[in-house]
Computed example of a mutant assay.
Amino acid sequence: MDRWQAMRIAVKVADSGSFAQAARQLHLSPAAITRAVSALEDQLRARLFVRTTRSVKLTDAGSRYVEDCRRILADIDEAEAAAGGLHATPSGTLTLTAPILFGQMVVLPILHDYLAAYPAMRGRTLFLDRPVNLLEEDIDVAVRIGHLPDSGFTAIQVGSVRRVVCGAPAYFSRHGTPATPADLKDHRLIAPTGAWASSEWRFAGNQRITTDPWLQCNTNDVAIATALAGAGLTRVLHYQIGPALQAGQLQIVLAGFEEPALPIHVLYPEGRRASAKVKAFVDMAVTQLRAHPLLR
């Protein structure tokens, strides 16, 4: 096996933390991955990985070597891409992830515009209400809501979203309007139970209430539909009820007690070495998201 492929395997094992996972991603057998790493360690006369039955971890020498491999492989990719014109014209498949409702309502129209602008491109979406590992899932671009952990990826903030309490006008006419968060104990609360949901609703000034939901819903769209029917109050992200707000079907309450808005970022791994397909989508997404009226 040539040196370039051996370096590529070492980086993939380090990123995935698993010989088996690296084998799947590189379309090789686990035995081939093991042999390649062992041969590389023999050639370098240094141990790169500490292997146990449950995990694979880099040694100090391995950490230094893998970082050097990343730089060298990136330079090779850059040279090949420049020679083949990859960085001039977007082509291939763009894989994109975002939260489900945000993906459907906000990101998908941008992807449609992108595919229309670049006919050689194909798209693939992975809309999930949980964080996705960009490297393990081979994701090109992610749109994330909330504060980001340190990852080494390039992140561009494109807006923010509020977490709001809302209900239908018919509900307020029957049950009144809460004036403070403490008043919510006297109202029917509809609580989403999906990712990032909590039984504790937090407000500005460190005010918190522990909800006793009249109805628990496993998805935000079901909670919103129940609120639209006038059955109770729910707490969701502002963009999720944008059309209903504009139509007067829902109203926001307790706006003066809201926590600071959550940031929205476009996130991608390659940084300045990103391919043309990624750069073109990121440029389009940043422009459209920053202009979106519900993300300010």
Rank of each mutant, 00 (worst) to 15 (best):
R70W: 00
T53V: 11
K185C: 08
V165C: 15
V66G: 01
V37Y: 06
I190Q: 12
D113A: 12
R124L: 06
A39D: 13
V143C: 12
S198N: 09
V236P: 02
V106Y: 03
A155K: 03
R202N: 14
G84F: 15
A197R: 12
A274L: 04
I156D: 03
L28A: 07
P192L: 14
L44K: 08
I76T: 06
S63W: 07
L135E: 11
Q104V: 15
F281I: 00
P119Y: 10
Q5P: 01
H292T: 03
L44Y: 05
L101V: 14
T154I: 00
L228P: 03
R162K: 04
K279R: 14
S63G: 12
P169R: 09
V165E: 14
S16P: 00
K12I: 04
R208E: 10
R35D: 11
L134P: 05
H87F: 13
V266I: 13
M105E: 12
S38T: 13
P263M: 04
H238M: 10
L289N: 06
L289Y: 06
P90I: 01
A82G: 11
L148C: 09
R290Q: 13
A255C: 11
V13K: 04
D221L: 07
H147E: 14
V107Q: 00
V11G: 02
S55A: 10
P243G: 13
A39Q: 11
E270R: 12
Q25P: 02
H27P: 00
S198E: 06
Y118M: 05
I145H: 13
R51D: 01
F172P: 09
A20K: 05
D129E: 10
L108Y: 10
T52P: 02
A116S: 11
L48R: 02
K279G: 02
A255R: 15
V236H: 09
D140T: 07
I156A: 05
S275T: 09
T177N: 00
Y114H: 03
K279N: 11
I33L: 11
R208L: 12
S38H: 15
Y239G: 11
P90K: 02
